[in-house]
Amino acid sequence: MRLNYPPNVRIVAVPCTGRVDMIHLLRAIEQGADGVYVAGCMEGECHFVSGNLKARRRVEAVKKLLREIGIEPERVEMFNVSASDGPRFAAVAREMTERVRGLGPSPLAKDHPLDLHLQAVG
């Protein structure tokens, strides 16, 4: 389909979003990512039954933790994208990029405030 999505998104592949733990998302933020999102399969379609549902709960836990330490929780998000739905994958990448651009650079990435770094997991 040769769809375009913002080049600032760096993809970290995992076998299932059920593999994504809180520490993975926190490490991305700690190392200066402006945002990090998890792109899991559609709810009800997880090959491992509930990996994407577990990932969503962990993302919510990270949001709660970030709120407690004064980082915008919107920098972290969970999306459901069917593996065959390229257009939605690109749309989600654009949506998250725009959201994070609106929030501005991560307060932890003071060395390169003009760069926008996003990490996609999933």
Partner: peptide, 13 residues
């Protein structure tokens, strides 16, 4: 790991 990361983030900010 989680608490350590959270504390480092908060203090760096």
């Amino acid at each position: 790991g989680i608490l350590g990361s959270a504390l480092r983030i908060a203090r760096k900010k």
